[in-house]
Amino acid sequence: MTTTKWWLVGAMLVIVLVMLAGYTLGISPKLDELSEARTTRSAALAQNEVYELQLAALQRQFDGLETVQDELAVLREAIPSGATLPTLIGQLDGIAGRTSVTLTEFSSADAMPYLPVVALPDTASGVDPTTAADASAAPSAASSPLVTAENFVAVPITIAVTGNFDAVLEFLDGLQNGQRLMTVTSFSTSAASAEAPDRVTGQIAGIVYVLLNGE
């Protein structure tokens, strides 16, 4: 082999070594950096998707907040944090006016720790409305660990109304479906007077509830 050929071979070897060194020292690290950057970008995109899902969930909860507040306001009226008997009497007057009966009596007893009672059966089911409900029967209310005798109290009340029989029954229905939650424990009727045989007096006993520290 001539000297010229040896020089050519040596030059080619040098070129190959330079290319290998360039790849090892320059191109390969850049490829690693590019791969790492792609991995980081993929992770960032995935995290952004998670954030977008969380933001959408929070937005849905926020959109429903007003509805929850409205429902809470209704519950506050049904079970207030105090007896608020003047407000209750006002509601009874409103029901009496709508059903054309006269509210003739209202009284309340001392509050007592909550004990579930059985509500009066619907008079439309054929049950004699003059039959009193047995308040000592098995409880029908669902129990909850959040409702205790310390924070949930019952206030017994007695109501008397006068009107025709159908109107008294309408008052009873309105009472059980009014703003204030009430459990009717007994109901009976009697003739209002001999001079007005078409009018009866309805005697209603029941319980309204108070959730202490409800704010």
Rank of each mutant, 00 (worst) to 15 (best):
L53M: 08
R98W: 03
A124Q: 08
P116T: 02
T67V: 13
A96M: 06
S125Q: 08
E66Y: 11
D110E: 15
I89Y: 01
G94N: 09
S81L: 07
L65Y: 14
G90R: 05
S136Y: 11
A142R: 11
T67W: 10
L92K: 00
R76L: 04
N151G: 10
P80E: 01
F106V: 04
T123Y: 15
F62D: 07
L115Q: 15
G126T: 01
S136T: 14
E105Q: 14
V74E: 07
A142E: 06
A83P: 13
A137N: 04
F106Y: 10
F62M: 05
R76M: 08
L120T: 11
V101F: 04
F106G: 05
T102R: 12
P113D: 00
L53R: 12
D110Q: 13
A124N: 09
L72T: 03
S144I: 06
P145N: 03
T67D: 15
T102K: 10
L65C: 03
T84K: 08
A137C: 01
G82F: 04
G90Q: 06
A137G: 03
A142F: 13
G82E: 12
T148R: 01
T102D: 06
D122L: 02
P129V: 09
A83C: 03
M112G: 09
Q91T: 04
Q59C: 04
A83Y: 08
D63S: 10
G97N: 12
M112N: 06
A133I: 08
A142K: 12
G64M: 15
T130S: 12
A137M: 07
A135K: 14
Y114W: 14
F152C: 00
D134V: 09
I79K: 02
T84H: 13
T148N: 01
L88Y: 01
P86V: 00
A57D: 13
G64C: 05
A73M: 13
L72D: 06
L103G: 02
Q61P: 15
V74S: 11
L53F: 05
D134M: 08
V118T: 14
T102Q: 12
V118Y: 12
V68T: 09
A56D: 11
